[in-house]
């Protein structure tokens, strides 16, 4: 069974958002997403400094079999990319909630209200 962690925000395209401090958030993919994908072999992420638009594609996570687009759950600017995932993409399978992909400064924290909480996401993936 896939898990959803309390306190995070979730998108319908299976990304999670964790507020670190004020406007600073981490973005990753959910346990449900990684279990659907299977063995992740490549993570294609944009560079720090890139602008993100909510609901727009920003990269891809690739399993052996298929590439899945990553859809941004937030609008803002990428501050940092998790370089560990470039060298060890399998971390996404091992602990997807620790394996953040992007650190983002979001434009408007109220945008997060349009995302799901853990309970709603749990129902969504039932």
């Amino acid at each position: 069974m896939s898990k959803a962690v309390e306190g995070l925000f979730y998108s319908e395209s299976h990304e999670w958002v964790k507020v670190v401090d004020g406007n600073i958030v981490l973005v990753g993919i959910t346990d449900f997403a990684q279990s659907q994908l299977g063995s992740v072999v490549f993570v294609d992420l944009p560079e720090a400094g890139t602008r993100l638009e909510k609901d727009a594609e920003f990269g891809a996570v690739e399993s052996v079999k298929a590439a899945s687009d990553l859809i941004s759950p937030v609008t803002g600017e990428i501050l940092e990319v998790n370089e560990d995932l470039i060298g060890e993409p399998e971390l996404v399978n091992q602990d997807d909630y620790a394996s953040w992909m992007l650190k983002v400064e979001i434009d408007d924290p109220t945008e997060l209200e349009s995302l799901m909480d853990a309970a709603a996401y749990g129902n969504f993936t039932e």
Binding site: G38, V64, K65
Partner: peptide, 8 residues
């Protein structure tokens, strides 16, 4: 069956 454990 597409995969039992993982493809690699």
């Amino acid at each position: 069956p597409i995969v039992y454990t993982n493809i690699p």
